[in-house]
């Protein structure tokens, strides 16, 4: 690898002709980092027909784009091989990815193949005495680790929402540079056969005003009807975290979070959900969040407005009863 520059590279994620919001968060933070390191912010844009997106990346000093049919659909192999070739030519100091289903693939693959140090799931990154220091969130939000990276090139992945996106939006025209595919298309050895749309379901949870969200704490499928009763009392529907869908208890269309839906209901009632960052990403902007979790230290209480640290199975019947009473629906008691 050529001697390292002090440049900070941001891998640009885009889907269907739009740059992901997360990328602007990374670009904004990169301005601070590049300033402290004495380098430039470089946005790396890979894809097919992506040139029009380059103009939206004005927070970068430079946009390097590779526009090639071989990069039309993301595969870790194609984008990783190209990134590696570019990084070997130009030696960035820091390579930043979102901690997403694309970024986590690329970061680990490159760290493995190039022997570069990597810190994943960062909530914060700074520069101290010319060295990069990153704080990684571990164990579903119950632990933080501050790690220092030596003075050599490194990779980080950054959690969504860690930094404000506004700082990464700019009208300034960046310097844009087209680079031809730096490797033979044959080196990209994977084929995307087809794209799959998000799961369509019976209900669109992103439109429901009230969501009763169930997590692994619901324990078994047989426990779902009582949450459905509660949801319909409140004029809402039941949604869930990923493990509930993975267990086959609810269809994928009900999943909230990174790989599910982003929701913003008037009320999000979280039952037995720990509050992992991948879940929180999908619901943190709800108007009112009430969380029930038997673990008083569950990270969900960091995003909720109100919390109850009790067994959900003890609270649920009483809550349902109280609501029925309030609605004047209580049985002839």
């Amino acid at each position: 690898m050529s001697p390292s520059s002090q440049d900070v590279w941001v891998y640009v994620e885009h889907l269907r002709g739009t740059v992901a919001g997360h990328t602007y968060e990374l670009l904004g933070k990169s301005r601070d980092l590049a300033g402290a390191l004495g380098g430039r912010v470089v946005a790396i844009l890979l894809g097919n027909g992506v040139q029009p997106l380059a103009g939206t990346l004005g927070a970068a000093d430079r946009v390097i784009y590779v526009d090639d049919p071989a990069l039309a659909e993301f595969t870790p192999q194609a984008h990783g091989t190209v990134l590696r070739a570019l990084a070997e030519q130009q030696a960035p100091r820091l390579l930043i990815f979102g901690a997403t289903s694309l970024g986590m693939d690329l970061a680990a693959l490159l760290a493995g193949s190039m022997g570069m140090p990597l810190i994943v799931n960062c909530k914060d990154i700074g520069v101290e005495d010319g060295r990069v220091v990153a704080t990684s969130q571990m164990c579903g939000g119950k632990l933080l680790c501050e790690a220092g990276i030596g003075d050599r090139p490194a990779i980080v992945t950054v959690l969504s929402g860690a930094f404000p996106a506004e700082k990464g939006a700019s009208d300034r025209p960046p310097q844009i540079e087209s680079v031809p595919l730096p490797v033979s298309p044959d080196a990209l050895r994977m084929k995307v056969l087809r794209l799959l749309e998000p799961a369509a379901g019976d209900v669109d949870i992103s439109k429901a005003p009230v969501l009763v969200a169930v997590g692994r704490g619901i324990q078994r499928k047989e426990n779902l009807p009582m949450t459905e009763d509660l949801a319909s009392l409140l004029g809402g529907v039941v949604c869930s975290s990923r493990p509930v869908v993975d267990q086959g208890w609810l269809p994928a269309s009900r999943q909230v979070g990174k790989s599910g839906m982003i929701v913003k209901p008037k009320l999000y009632l979280a039952l037995g959900i720990s509050g992992a960052p991948e879940h929180v990403e999908g619901m943190k902007d709800a108007d009112l969040i009430i969380a029930v979790n038997s673990d008083p230290k569950a990270p969900i209480f960091d995003v909720a407005d109100y919390g109850v640290a009790v067994d959900l199975f003890e609270l649920l019947p009483l809550l349902t009863q109280e609501i029925e009473k309030r609605k004047g629906l209580a049985a002839a008691s």
């Binding site: 595969t75 870790p76 192999q77 990783g80 289903s101 986590m104 693939d105 690329l106 970061a107 680990a108 693959l109 490159l110 760290a111 493995g112 193949s113 190039m114 140090p117 990597l118 810190i119 994943v120 990684s136 571990m138 680790c145 790690a147 050895r189 994977m190 790989s259």
Partner: peptide
């Protein structure tokens, strides 16, 4: 913390890799 084992291993072995 310092990576995800699947991708790191694929990179070290120089094998095709898809994650998630």
């Amino acid at each position: 913390l310092d990576g995800h084992a699947a991708g790191l291993l694929a990179g070290m072995l120089d094998l095709p890799f898809v994650g998630v």
